[in-house]
Amino acid sequence: MKRFQLTRNTFGRLVFTSPDDAEVHEGVVPVRAFPIAAPDEGIALVNKQGRELAWIDRLADLPAASRILIEEELNSREFLPEIRRIVHVSTFASPSTWDVETDRGPAKLVLKGEEDIRRVAHSTLLIADAHGVQYLIRDIQELDQGSRKLLDRFL
């Protein structure tokens, strides 16, 4: 079975070519079905009008060239730093400034209130800072003891 093809045009946009070469769409966008729970599974490729052109069960099943293009596109559109460690919090009352280490480097976030910490799975949290940036804690149990202790004061 021939698969679809993905390339980039001269403007850097993704170009989708159907398996039978009958359809070509420029400006294709990958969309994750479950960006937090299963980021590498369930990805739709949609055209400019939002119509699904292809469904990808698992990124790992794609040829390397297509997988890399999709990952690059997703990374350029999505910004969801993952908190690896909570270094310091200014106060246990709200608003509170947190110094954190993320997968993208050190950061400061301002937590307006405890309601800005949302549980999205058993041990996964999404934290919205005062500037609208979302931070992810994928697994509370993977944080060091000091970070968990600081976090517990807000949960």
Rank of each mutant, 00 (worst) to 15 (best):
S66D: 14
E72R: 01
A65Y: 02
W98R: 10
I70V: 14
V89S: 14
E72W: 03
S94W: 10
Q145W: 08
E26D: 07
L53D: 10
S147W: 01
D144Q: 07
R67A: 13
Q5I: 13
E82V: 07
D152Y: 07
A22H: 00
R8M: 08
P81E: 11
R84E: 15
K108L: 11
I43P: 07
D103T: 08
G27T: 10
Y135Q: 13
S76N: 12
D116H: 06
A54C: 02
E71H: 01
D116V: 05
I117S: 04
E114G: 15
I140T: 15
L59R: 01
D99N: 04
K2H: 12
L109D: 13
L125T: 10
F79S: 15
A64T: 12
D61C: 01
S96A: 14
Y135M: 12
E71A: 01
R8E: 15
S147G: 09
A107I: 09
D144I: 12
R77L: 14
T102M: 02
P19Y: 00
D144E: 12
V87D: 14
K112F: 09
E73M: 05
D116L: 04
I86M: 07
E142F: 04
G105N: 08
G50N: 02
H25D: 10
F92I: 15
L80Q: 04
V31W: 00
L59Q: 08
L53I: 10
I56K: 03
R84K: 15
L109G: 12
D144L: 06
N47M: 02
G27Y: 03
V100D: 07
T124F: 04
D40H: 00
E23W: 00
L45Q: 07
P39L: 04
K149H: 12
A93Y: 05
S66G: 05
H25W: 05
D116A: 09
D144P: 07
H122I: 14
A60S: 13
Q134H: 09
S90H: 00
R32A: 08
E142L: 11
D40T: 06
A65G: 06
P63M: 10
A44S: 12
L74F: 03
N75P: 05
G113C: 09
R118M: 13
A64E: 13
I68Y: 05
F154S: 09
L69G: 05
R104E: 14
W98E: 14
T7F: 06
A130K: 10
V110D: 11
P81C: 06
E72P: 02
D21S: 12
G42A: 03
G132A: 04
T97I: 09
G42Y: 02
E73W: 03
T124R: 04
R119P: 10
E115N: 10
V15M: 06
R148Y: 02
E115R: 07
A22F: 03
L155F: 14
L109E: 13
T7Q: 13
R85T: 14
L109K: 09
V133N: 06
D61F: 02
